[in-house]
Amino acid sequence: MTRSNRNVTVYGAYGHTGRFVVAELCERGWTPILAGRDAGKLDEMGSAFPELERRVASVMDPSSLDRALVGAFGVINCAGPFLDTAVPMLEAALRARVHYLDVCAEQAVALGIFERFSETARNTGITVIPAMAFYGGLADLLATTAMQDWPDADAIEIGVALDRWHPTAGTRAPRRPAHGSRLVFTDGKLEPLADPPPSREWTFCAPFATQQMVALPFSEIITISRHMRSDKVQSYMNLTPLNDLRDPSTPPPTSTDARGRSAQVFAVDVLVRRNGQTRRAIAHGRDIYAISAPLVVEALQRISDGRCRKIGVAAPAEAFVAHEFLASIRDLRLEGC
């Protein structure tokens, strides 16, 4: 597909994150193709976007995935659980020779994409970027920005603070077990997270101040470990949102502005340590689901206009110049970058 092609399939378009992605694409001059397995939900979404084509597609029917990608420059997969959807949709993208991006947080998914599809994607001539979202992509870009000109690091530590976490139905949905334990990067290799997971204090800027944290690694461990040299990579989250997530009475997110964002605020604080020195990069923003939309759409835009540095499977900061990419995201406030 040529760079002038502005059609992009959004799989899981009617989901909570998918709706943000569709709106972001429209705002930036792309033409989303609304795709998903539920015809009723696609029709319902079509009432808000009557000018957009709708295509029913299921991961159980590869030919329907092929039809969903006809005429597209790329596909953005927003349909969880990604343990079920990522491989079938990526295989369809390879058949169609269109670029693939997703917003997965699952480590097993991101790792599997790197291990299984790197050579095939490179030979096919497409770019594949898993975890191009709040979990995965944002920390990967911040860590690379903080690293600057250091060739390696003794440790990369990621602190995520949310004031609340009102989970979507997709976040709460029952899932089949992931492949193995959560992973951290220690002594140059991926290893299972300790049980019980380590805890610590972390001092953020306002409004979070000092927070009690517990180790909770997501897909950023996979993306960072693929292209950055560090003896250790670990992620932590504060306890308040985890208590919300565990409480079945916590309501789903509620829109509080014209763009549909919730009032939730977040900070992602990345520390890179080397030889007794520390470098830091911090991002503040609003609504972890909503922020994934400008991140993944900016990535697609940069692939389209030739500012992507890698063909094949890539971590976000492998594909793009990290500090420039972060500075282009309107909804992020950056410090130390």
Rank of each mutant, 00 (worst) to 15 (best):
I288R: 00
L25G: 12
A93R: 02
F204C: 01
A93Q: 13
V272E: 02
S58M: 13
A146C: 12
L193V: 11
L190P: 04
R54D: 08
V296F: 08
R19N: 09
L101R: 13
A317H: 01
P167Y: 06
P241A: 02
F134I: 01
E53Y: 10
Q107N: 15
Q107F: 04
K41Y: 09
R333K: 11
A96W: 02
V10R: 06
A68I: 15
R175Q: 13
T2G: 09
M60N: 14
E106A: 13
S47H: 10
E24V: 08
M132E: 15
L142W: 04
L193W: 12
V270D: 10
S262V: 05
L138R: 12
N77Q: 12
S118F: 02
M147N: 04
L183V: 13
Y100F: 15
P197M: 10
F114Y: 15
A209I: 03
F204G: 05
S199L: 08
Y289P: 08
P198G: 11
P251N: 04
C308K: 07
P198C: 08
V98P: 15
G12I: 01
E324A: 14
P62E: 14
V296Y: 06
S235Y: 05
A133C: 05
A110Q: 07
A48N: 10
R28C: 04
A153L: 05
V75M: 14
E324C: 12
D61W: 12
A68P: 15
L42I: 00
E53N: 14
H166T: 09
A315Q: 02
S181P: 15
P130F: 13
M213R: 04
L111V: 15
G170I: 01
T254C: 07
A327D: 15
T223A: 09
R122I: 04
S63N: 15
R37N: 06
A209D: 13
V10C: 06
L101W: 09
D154H: 00
A13T: 07
L183F: 10
Q212H: 09
E335H: 12
Q264P: 01
K41C: 04
D269Q: 10
G336N: 11
R37E: 05
A35C: 13
P50E: 01
S262W: 01
N5W: 06
A263Q: 06
A108G: 15
A293S: 12
V10Q: 08
A155M: 09
T9D: 03
R246H: 03
M45G: 02
I158L: 07
R274I: 03
Y11G: 02
K232H: 05
I156D: 06
S249H: 00
D61K: 07
I224H: 02
D152C: 10
P294R: 01
P192T: 10
S249E: 02
E119C: 08
Y100Q: 11
D43R: 09
V233Q: 07
V214L: 08
V297C: 03
E157V: 15
P81Y: 00
T278A: 09
P196W: 03
Q148K: 14
Q264Y: 00
K310N: 03
G306P: 08
A169V: 12
D84L: 15
I282S: 07
Q301A: 14
D257Q: 00
P196E: 04
P151E: 13
